[in-house]
Design a protein around this nucleic acid. Structure first.
Lengths: 316, 316
DNA sequence: CTGAAAGCGCTAACAC
DNA sequence: GTGTTAGCGCTTTCAG
């Protein structure tokens, strides 16, 4: 017990949890003892005593429970699990239905839930968060007062992609966006509008949902509606890869007739034919940041943006 | 409290945990009360009291920690998380180094660890499991006494793939296997040997590691060593997709010159060019079965095999 | 077979 | 500021 190396259990608890008063003297003694013993507080006991919890919940917003099958959710979960494992706590995965944001509040009320990492949060979901959840929720996407957000800088990333397409001579650049209900994709769509606008080019946006299936549909839709389109920028490599496949089947030459670019730089972007030009999304780093903020209760910046770097390949 | 609806806390505990004696009378009363109240035992309290735990650990064997980045591990983790969430417990992700199987024993000893789902276990790792772990460990791959195994029927799956290649007129079928240290892939390799053997064809096997990068190398290796190869069967779609990309770059026509087939039927198998012929691997169902066995402490069959179905596409 | 009682490791009042 | 004390919800001896 860390207690043997100094003071009483109460004092030790106070300094380790950061709450309550403690003199610098005992503060440092406890810290040293804890370090020497490699002390990790028992999450179960902490939970039982009324504070803390034994797992961080990864809550994914979406219209249907399918969002849990998205590889994106799996990557977030995996990264969060890595951070959690070091503190001997677990993670769990939950769906927050678009039509029932209160599911989030219920989740936050569960005993074992230490904190929540929100994926694809809507403002409605953020609004129903009980004050008891303050300080133990972080969002990947948009945040709110008391809910720090971590995300990729998709505005800059999108601007770079579209800038590259335009610089390469493309004049009819269409974009397959994210779902309309997802506010964190606005930055990317705005960037697209701005860049094509500044170049005096038309705005051609169709909604997407990050899936490959939707990418296939969207590509057909774009070509039907605007036959002279010479570039497609999809928010999400899955969607871009779907578009690539559909264009290939339709006999459209990529990048000859139409350039295609994605967003995320997933592993398959380097394996498709043609290989996919895209921009990076350090999901694991972002998720780890969010999980750390939740677990350590540290007051993070309201919004931490991770850079997105252009990756030029053959498709654009 | 379920207790109010009948007997004393001790008796309730006895019937709910299944341990200890209890009369049929109180047994049914407690069961009914629990059902009515929608009672879920508090994992934290259980842990603190010395039994149970607050998370199921997913432990992945491998030479390096990279195995945790494999999408396969993420799928298992996600599926396990789904099962765990219903019981209000979490999951965590761990690497069991090939050179240090004792890491598994340490993991099993951790307080909060309710049970372990072993992914890609070696016999050495299974051998060091402490008896205290008995009944709360399940394997995805090969099992052992007291460790039920859940896996895809990769023997039958591989036989079907190779059978299809041979039936299609391929006479020089090479296989990219799994890592040599992974015993659960033996069934697939044996099936390959058997099918080509029975057809009087040569055995051409090169080792793989399930990665796309290795698939690219392996394809080059196979063609360098046996230039007349007319089909490549890779254990794992990632590897097959890597091979596909490498062959495409080398100007080899697929499936004209060389047929390519994979194993797993991941989402990208339908998006590559050409689309990939493969065979299914219901990873989520398998992982859910393993997680359920661990959490419910139910005596599962020593080996539960899930069927693998051939998916014919353009590459073979 | 069943109930009463003692903790598991920690936090949160409450005195000092 | 710090120590003492009473539980958190469960399992588990130990008597009945």
């Amino acid at each position: 017990m860390a207690r043997l190396a100094g003071v009483s259990t109460a004092t030790a608890s106070r300094v380790l949890s950061g709450r309550g008063p403690a003199s610098p003297a005992s503060r440092s003694r406890v810290a040293r003892a804890a370090r020497e013993l490699g002390y990790v507080p028992d999450a179960a006991a902490r939970t039982l005593a009324g504070s803390g919890g034994t797992r961080v919940a990864v809550a994914v917003g979406g219209r249907t429970a399918d969002v849990l099958d998205d590889p994106y959710a799996a990557r977030v979960l995996t990264a969060a699990a890595g951070v959690a494992a070091a503190r001997e706590v677990g993670v769990s995965l939950h769906w927050v239905p678009l039509h029932d944001p209160a599911a989030l509040a219920r989740l936050a009320g569960q005993r074992g839930v230490d904190g929540i990492v929100l994926v694809n949060p809507t403002r409605a979901a953020l609004a129903v968060l009980p004050r008891s959840a303050r300080g133990r929720v972080a969002a990947i996407g948009v945040g709110a007062r008391g809910v720090p957000a971590f995300d990729v800088d998709n505005g800059t990333g999108a601007a770079r992609v579209v800038g590259h397409l335009v610089a390469g001579g493309r004049r009819r650049v269409a974009m397959v966006t994210g779902p309309a209900w997802l506010p964190c994709t606005d930055r990317a769509v705005d960037a697209y509008r701005r860049v094509v606008g500044e170049a005096g080019l038309p705005v051609r946006a169709v909604p997407g949902d990050f899936t490959a299936a939707r990418g296939e549909e969207a590509a057909a839709e774009v070509l039907a509606r605007w036959p002279d389109t010479d570039a497609v920028f999809a928010l999400g490599d899955l969607t871009a890869l779907g578009a690539l496949a559909a264009l290939g089947r339709a006999g459209v030459d990529v990048p000859g007739d139409v350039a295609v670019a994605g967003f995320d730089d997933i592993a398959f972007a380097a394996l498709s034919r043609p290989t996919l030009t895209t921009t990076t999304n350090p999901v694991e780093a972002i998720a780890a940041g969010a999980a750390t903020a939740v677990l350590d209760r540290c007051a993070a910046e309201p919004l931490t943006l991770h850079p997105s770097e252009l990756v030029l390949r053959d498709s654009a």
